[in-house]
Design a protein around this nucleic acid. Structure first.
Lengths: 132, 132
DNA sequence: TTCTTTAATAATAACAATTCTAAATTAGGA
DNA sequence: TCCTAATTTAGAATTGTTATTATTAAAGAA
C-alpha cells in the first residue's frame, strides 16, 4: 500500500552490495558493508551505501534489524526468523524456529498486527573465555 | 558479575526521574523525560538525564528498550514482558504473556542465555484511521 | 546505436541521539 | 561540621544516519 516495489535500476554499486549480502549471515552494519565495498569500489560513498540499503529494504530485498542498540544491522534473509545476540560483542546468530506466537485479544485489539521478532540475548563463548 | 548494584546516591534529580518513571507505562525516550523534568528542574541538563538513566539501568532499576529504531526507550517495569509497537507512531504497548520460549540446543550451544524479548509490530488504531 | 529521461551516485553538509570533558556542586558518611 | 567521592552542569565532541545538490549513468525509446 505504501509503495509498489517497482523495478530497481541495477547499478554496479547495487549489484556489489546485493552480492555482498547474498547468503551473508553476519548481519553487517552499514559501516561494515561500506568497508567491504572499499576494495572493489574505492569511490563508493557512504551515502550510496545508506541509499542502497534503504532502497533495498523498501523493495523487500533485505530486512533492517533494530536488535543492536548501537546501529542498524542488515539481514538478507527474508524468511521470518529470530536472533540471538551477544550483549558483549554484538555477534548475532539466526534462530530459525517458528514459535507461532499469538497475542491475547485484549492486547491486539485496535492493532493491525504485522509480525513479530524475538531477540534472545546472552554471552557468547569467546566473550566468556576472554574474561567478560 | 559486572558490578554490584551499590547503593545509589539520592539526588533531587534522580528522585524526580525515578518518580516520573514509577508506574509509567508509556516507555518514554530520554528526550520525553528531559522535557517532563523541565517544569520542576529548569536547570536539569540533558547529560544528567542520560547519566541517571544509565546509572539506574546498571543498578537494575529500569530497562532500556531497543525496540524503537530512532532512540532508546525506558521501561521501569522489571518483570519480564514483551512489547507491541506501532511502526507508524512508535507507540508501545506492554504484552505481559509468558511464552516460555526455548532455544534449540544447536543454537544456544556456546552461549550463556540471559533472556529474551519479543517485539510485536503492527499499526495502531489512530494511525490507521488517520490514513496511514 | 544514439538520444532522452529519470533515477542514482558522490561529496559534503546537516542532524539527532548519545557520550564525553572538565569545572563546580553536593550527598552522605566520618 | 567537614571531607571526599560522586553527581550535576554546560557545552563540546562523537556516532550513526539523513538531506542536499551537482554530476553521472541506467534503461527504454527512437
Amino acid at each position: 500500500m505504501r509503495e509498489a516495489p517497482r523495478k530497481l535500476k541495477m547499478t554496479p554499486q547495487r549489484l556489489a552490495i546485493l552480492d555482498y549480502l547474498r547468503d551473508n549471515v553476519k548481519h553487517p552494519s552499514a559501516e561494515t558493508i561500506f568497508k567491504a565495498m572499499k576494495d572493489k569500489f574505492p569511490t563508493m560513498s557512504f551515502a550510496t551505501v545508506y541509499n542502497t540499503l534503504s532502497t533495498l529494504s523498501k523493495a523487500n530485498r533485505l530486512r533492517e534489524l533494530t536488535i543492536d542498540p548501537e546501529k542498524k544491522r542488515f539481514d538478507p534473509d527474508l524468511k521470518p526468523h529470530h536472533h540471538l545476540i551477544c550483549i558483549r560483542c554484538g555477534k548475532i546468530v539466526d534462530v530459525k524456529v517458528d514459535y507461532g506466537l499469538k497475542l491475547p485479544y485484549a492486547v491486539k485489539k485496535g492493532f493491525e498486527i504485522i509480525g513479530n521478532h524475538i531477540e534472545f540475548y546472552g554471552i557468547c563463548d569467546e566473550c566468556r573465555s576472554l574474561g567478560k
